[in-house]
């Protein structure tokens, strides 16, 4: 006969966050910041695939999903770029070096960087959408000879809102990577492109029929970008987008992130456009 109250051995993982210490905080733009994290105890690395996300927990405040934006081959530290948009991210921004965050993850599907071998790669980012795409770009650049042409198209709100400025300058100077940046609204003495990011597609150097495109940004931006790429000749099965919905568990159990038949947390966040195009054009799904 089993006793009524003993202790349970069934672990609550992956429902429990693990403590991670902030090694460095970097302010990217007025409302965006990057955290560099390491496990609070031990030296275990953090392995993930480009496009995956973690649940980030601020002690006692709450937990939210945030994509991982570091180099997938540099597992020593975990990098998250976040924008301050709500209670949890506000609390997160107040954190300093040596403070501790909770991490659960990595969760979700990834950008098809392995499947895209030998193809031209077009990454299209809008706003903070550059952060979830950065690991894909790292991977492609780490294995540059596996790919054809590589193009990054990036649309920001204003020149002040451009993420990863230093790195963009480095990327721009590379001969084997074409970077185009545009802003919706020119301010200061911005001398670059002005116009919506879709305007960059027609003059970007890639061969549409042999291209894998990865898009991340607001839903409207992704929809129009996908259409523009398809208009140029990219197959809709080769266009990938990263979706965002409310998430509480990150592991397919809480039901919040449902998008038609899909759970964004486990079937996504990365989907092929062909798979979800029918949903993208419906209201309030």
């Amino acid at each position: 006969m089993e006793p009524l109250h003993s202790t349970s051995q069934v672990p609550m993982l992956p429902m429990q966050p693990e403590p991670y210490r902030i090694e460095r905080v970097h302010k990217d733009t007025g409302d965006t910041f990057t955290l560099e994290l390491k496990p609070a105890a031990g030296n275990a690395g953090f392995a993930f695939k480009p496009g995956q996300f973690n649940m980030l927990y601020v002690f006692g405040v709450g937990e939210i999903p945030i994509s991982i934006s570091g180099d997938p081959e540099d597992t020593a530290s975990l990098i998250h770029t976040t924008r301050e948009v709500g209670t949890v991210t506000r609390a997160m921004r107040a954190l300093k070096q040596a403070d501790v965050l909770g991490i659960r993850g990595p969760f979700g599907s990834s950008w098809p960087v392995l499947e895209a071998k030998d193809q031209d790669i077009v990454l299209v980012a809008g706003g903070i959408g550059l952060a979830p795409l950065r690991p894909a770009l790292y991977h492609v650049m780490n294995h540059r000879s596996d790919y054809g042409k590589v193009v990054l198209l990036y649309g920001a709100r204003t020149p002040e809102d451009i993420l990863y400025k230093k790195e963009l300058a480095q990327w721009r100077s590379k001969f084997d990577l074409d970077v185009f940046v545009t802003v919706d609204r020119a301010t200061g003495n911005w001398q670059g492109n002005v116009g919506f990011v879709t305007q960059l597609i027609k003059r970007a150097p890639f061969e549409a029929r042999n291209t894998t495109a990865m898009i991340c940004g607001p839903e409207v931006m992704m929809r129009f970008t996908a259409q523009e790429l398809i208009k140029r000749g990219v197959a809709k099965e080769q266009v990938f987008v990263s979706m965002e919905r409310n998430m509480k568990c990150g592991i397919g159990l809480c039901g919040h992130c449902q998008y038609g038949p899909h759970f964004i947390c486990k079937d996504g966040p990365v989907f092929s456009y062909a798979e979800i195009a029918w949903l993208l054009n419906l209201w309030e799904v």
């Binding site: 409302d31 924008r83 301050e84 948009v85 809008g126 706003g127 903070i128 649309g155 920001a156 709100r157 809102d161 919706d184 609204r185 116009g195 919506f196 879709t198 305007q199 940004g217 607001p218 409207v220 931006m221 129009f224």
Partner: peptide
């Protein structure tokens, strides 16, 4: 015009 519409929507703005 369509690109301009998207441009003025300020899609990346902080809500």
């Amino acid at each position: 015009l369509q690109a301009t519409r998207l441009q003025v929507l300020d899609l990346y703005g902080t809500p």
